[in-house]
């Protein structure tokens, strides 16, 4: 793939929710190139989810241009063509897993892409087993645990064989073990991705560059910030030093 042209190119994007005082995204520019692994760390309500939904064409920006894979996308039919190539993992897995059983949910994407039932089932089984979810095929989606739901949702997105992944708070609400499992999976994927998170430790292991959203714009955070940690340990009341 040509790395000179960004695969996602956002130009001068502004978006505000009705009734809000300030725009969530304010003349935002952002280029994302193939092979990049980018983190986006920002507080809640700063527009991260909005940004992803604009890229997918689920929300329409008030102004600006979007180019995906080198083509301008503005109407629904343009987005329909690019959506299968970009996998968006929703923040709440319950939004994503609507089918009664796991296998049906993972097969939903491939079937929509025109694959036959046999192919779709084969892809889904392969995807489930590569994420360590063998034997989950006939489980009822609503009875899965939070971590299992997240992994199944990821399998469902990956089953469409996208070229880019957009992950919205993938580590939120996961226990340490599942989080490690997820980090392992993402590290071994041969795919470009953008991860939104507010867990710095999680991002640090997965992203090559980390951006922040400030006042509706994406900013590369390269400066070193001096900050202090409050920490606790036994005998902490005694005067002492740390090196």
């Amino acid at each position: 793939m040509n790395t000179d042209h960004p695969i996602i190119c956002l130009n001068n994007i502004s978006f505000s929710y009705p009734g809000a005082d300030a725009p969530v995204l304010d003349q935002l520019d952002f280029d994302f190139y193939a092979g990049e692994r980018t983190g986006l760390v920002a507080p809640n309500g700063s527009g991260k989810t909005t940004l992803f939904q604009i890229v997918m064409g689920l929300l329409k920006p008030d102004s600006g241009h979007i180019k995906i894979f080198g083509k301008t996308v503005s109407e629904e039919k343009d987005f329909v063509a690019v959506r299968p190539r970009i996998g968006l993992l929703f923040q709440d897995a319950d939004d994503q897993l609507f089918s009664p059983t796991v296998l049906e949910d993972v097969a939903f994407g491939p079937l929509n892409l025109g694959k036959s039932k046999q192919e779709a089932v084969a892809i889904s089984r392969r995807m489930l087993s590569s994420l360590g979810l063998e034997g989950f095929e006939d489980r009822i989606t609503l009875k899965l645990s939070g971590g299992e739901k997240r992994l199944v949702a990821l399998a469902a997105v990956l089953a469409m064989q996208p070229e880019v992944l957009l992950l919205d708070e993938p580590s939120a609400g996961l226990d340490e073990k599942t989080k490690e499992h997820l980090v392992g999976i993402l590290k071994n994927l041969d795919i470009s991705y953008i991860i939104v998170s507010h867990e710095f430790d999680f991002l640090a292991g997965l992203a090559e560059s980390i951006y922040t959203l400030q006042n509706g714009k994406i900013v590369l955070d390269t400066e070193l910030h001096l900050h202090e940690h409050v920490h606790a340990h036994t005998y902490g009341r005694q005067p002492h030093k740390h090196d």
Binding site: L58, R83, P84, L88, Q96, F98, G109, K117, A156
Partner: peptide, 22 residues
């Protein structure tokens, strides 16, 4: 709101109004 999100997620996975049964 939930219905809206679910529909969005379905569109992201190429939903075009057809359901399949396995």
């Amino acid at each position: 709101e939930r219905a809206d999100q679910v529909y969005k997620a379905m569109r992201c996975r190429g939903f075009n109004g057809r359901f399949y049964c396995l």
